[in-house]
């Protein structure tokens, strides 16, 4: 039931798997943290936007006669195009969700938008259930895959892709947030919405862009998770979303660097628990971390504590 294996031999291997998984969580965590940073809402539906990213990618890939293409460069370009399309569509869906479900409640008591977000999550899950059914759906493995061996450690192109894509997205996001005008507007709005408004920042569109970017990143995560796992499932977003949220909290919610760090930490903890104890305890471990972080360090690893104003 509960025994600790000697997992030293596969330690490095689990670390590599954990980094790949962590990249995925980090991508999703970014959306949580950006939205929370700007409107203090736990966007419960975010995990489902991520699953939606897988489903959308799957449908786009279904339109392409992949079996007839063998040129790896062409396949790579197709993958890139699908990522971009999935990101765009998820971004638009994120903006729609904000517009239809959250904007009206921006000044309501905080529980109201949170409950709404849970509702949106349920609706998205059911739409996906109707769309692709109750069981796991296989995701075409159209990219050539090679295994690499360095020392005793093996990893394949798929894990490499997850790590590379998530790192690229994070670098782009960082550049965007800290070096563009819109990024500045986002940071200003997150600091003080009213002051930002007075400074001539269009708060509504800034918030919409935040949703767009966060959801687009979830879309990217959706595609790469499909490639990584080879399957997808309409309820994937619930668990993945909770774990990514845990990552965001662990890193310090509202903090972009923290979300990335948290994502990798959670990914590694999850694979280590699976490797050293057993699969069935990995979730318990992650949620225990969530609870412990919130209880003992609610501001997370990198966040700072803000006093309540009276």
């Amino acid at each position: 039931m509960f025994e600790i294996h000697n997992c030293a031999p596969q330690f490095i291997q689990q670390l590599i798997n954990g980094v790949a998984l962590g990249g995925l969580y980090a991508l999703i965590a970014l959306g949580y943290t950006m939205v929370y940073g700007i409107i203090e809402l736990i966007n419960f539906a975010h995990g489902d936007v991520y699953t939606l990213g897988s489903f959308i990618s799957l449908s786009i890939l279904g339109l392409i006669p992949l079996a007839t293409i063998s040129n790896p460069t062409v396949l790579g370009l197709i993958a890139l195009a699908v990522i971009i399309l999935a990101a765009l569509l998820c971004g638009i869906i994120g903006v729609l969700i904000e517009r239809l479900a959250y904007r009206r409640l921006r000044n309501a008591p905080r529980l109201a938008p949170l409950i709404t977000a849970i509702g949106v999550s349920l609706i998205l899950e059911n739409i996906m259930q109707i769309w692709k059914g109750n069981s796991e759906v296989s995701f075409p493995q159209f990219l050539p895959d090679h295994w690499h061996q360095i020392g005793g450690v093996r990893f394949d192109d798929r894990s490499l892709m997850v790590v590379v894509v998530s790192l690229v997205c994070m670098i782009l996001l960082n550049f965007f947030v800290f070096h563009t005008k819109l990024g500045k507007a986002m940071r200003a709005t997150a600091q003080d919405r009213d002051a930002a408004q007075l400074m001539g920042i269009n708060v509504n569109s800034t918030i919409a862009w935040t949703f767009f970017i966060g959801s687009a990143l979830a879309g990217v995560a959706g595609f790469i998770s499909g490639m990584y796992y080879g399957t997808t499932f309409f309820l994937n977003g619930y668990q993945a979303g909770l774990k990514a949220f845990t990552a965001a909290v662990l890193g310090g919610i509202g903090n972009i660097t923290g979300a990335m760090l948290g994502g990798f930490v959670i990914g590694i903890i999850e694979t280590m628990t699976s490797g050293c104890i057993s699969d069935q305890w990995s979730e318990v471990a992650v949620f225990a971390i969530l609870i412990l972080t919130l209880v003992f360090r609610p501001s997370g690893l990198l966040g700072q504590q803000l006093p309540e104003k009276v």
């Binding site: 039931m1 509960f2 203090e40 809402l41 736990i42 905080r110 529980l111 949170l114 909770l242 949220f245 845990t246 909290v249 069935q280 305890w281 979730e283 318990v284 949620f287 225990a288 969530l290 609870i291 919130l294 209880v295 609610p298």
Partner: peptide, 21 residues
């Protein structure tokens, strides 16, 4: 408030998992 929501959600996930494991 919203942190409490998430902590209780985590608790709600852990309890059935414990009964299962």
């Amino acid at each position: 408030g919203d942190y409490l929501a998430i902590v209780t959600l985590g608790f709600g996930e852990i309890v059935p998992q414990l009964f299962q494991n």
